[in-house]
């Protein structure tokens, strides 16, 4: 595993990380080894986020770096060899709310922690969550909402999942004004105050 690549990513040296990736691949390194280094680096960034050493800028930029590396690596990947995932999660910002930054960070952190995330985007209707849970077989749903107007759509989404008979699906919620009061109000199974909390909750359910 390339320590040089891991260091470039965790130090947020964006251009170096992409250049090192190309150098490694050109020198015969396997795409899988490069992605393993990326995973290691993302784990370090995630841990720093958890301990208060990394913040939103690092998570967002790490996501950008990873996307650039993936664009270089993926054409050289052979089919198959997908990692075994911890579980499937359907994620989205609830109906009426168009904020995506926190949801994107949660999705990113869940992804690098081994979950298969289906991100439905923003302003997602309850029926869309139900339909996607059914089609993917996901057992976890993550509902994001930045504004107070998200409280009722979150509640309606939880109700819609239950009404559709998806009683074995667990729902976690999060966002700017979300707390234990709102968890009780919406009937969700858990709320998380940040992306690491979302990962911890999802792992406890996986």
């Amino acid at each position: 595993m390339s320590q040089e690549l891991i260091d470039a990513i965790t130090d947020m040296r964006e251009e170096d990380a992409v250049a090192i990736t190309k150098k490694l691949l050109d020198g015969g390194a396997s795409p899988v080894a490069v992605l393993d280094a990326c995973r290691e680096a993302m784990g370090i960034i995630g841990m720093r986020f958890e301990t208060g050493e990394s913040f939103m800028p690092e998570l967002i930029l790490a996501g950008e770096i990873l996307a650039q590396i993936s664009a270089v690596v993926k054409p050289r990947m052979q089919q198959g060899g997908e990692d075994k995932k911890l579980g499937k999660i359907v994620l989205g910002t609830v109906q009426g709310d168009i904020h995506d930054i926190a949801k994107d960070i949660v999705g990113f952190m869940l992804d690098i922690n081994g979950f298969e995330v289906t991100d439905l985007g923003v302003d997602v209707a309850p029926e869309k969550f139900v339909e996607t849970v059914k089609s993917t077989g996901a057992k976890i749903v993550g509902l994001s909402g930045f504004l107070t107007l998200a409280f009722d759509p979150m509640k309606h989404t939880v109700e819609a999942l239950k009404a559709a008979g998806l009683t074995d699906v667990k729902v976690m919620i999060g966002g700017g004004q979300i707390d234990e009061n709102i968890r009780q109000y919406t009937g969700a199974d858990a709320y998380g105050k940040d992306a690491m909390a979302a990962v911890a909750i999802a792992k406890s359910w996986a």
């Binding site: 107070t148 409280f151 004004q177 979300i178 707390d179 009061n181 709102i182 009780q184 109000y185």
Partner: peptide, 13 residues
């Protein structure tokens, strides 16, 4: 005073 409390809490809370 939390907006969540005003929205969904009880008067006593």
């Amino acid at each position: 005073v939390a907006a969540s409390l005003m929205s969904t809490g009880t008067t006593d809370q």
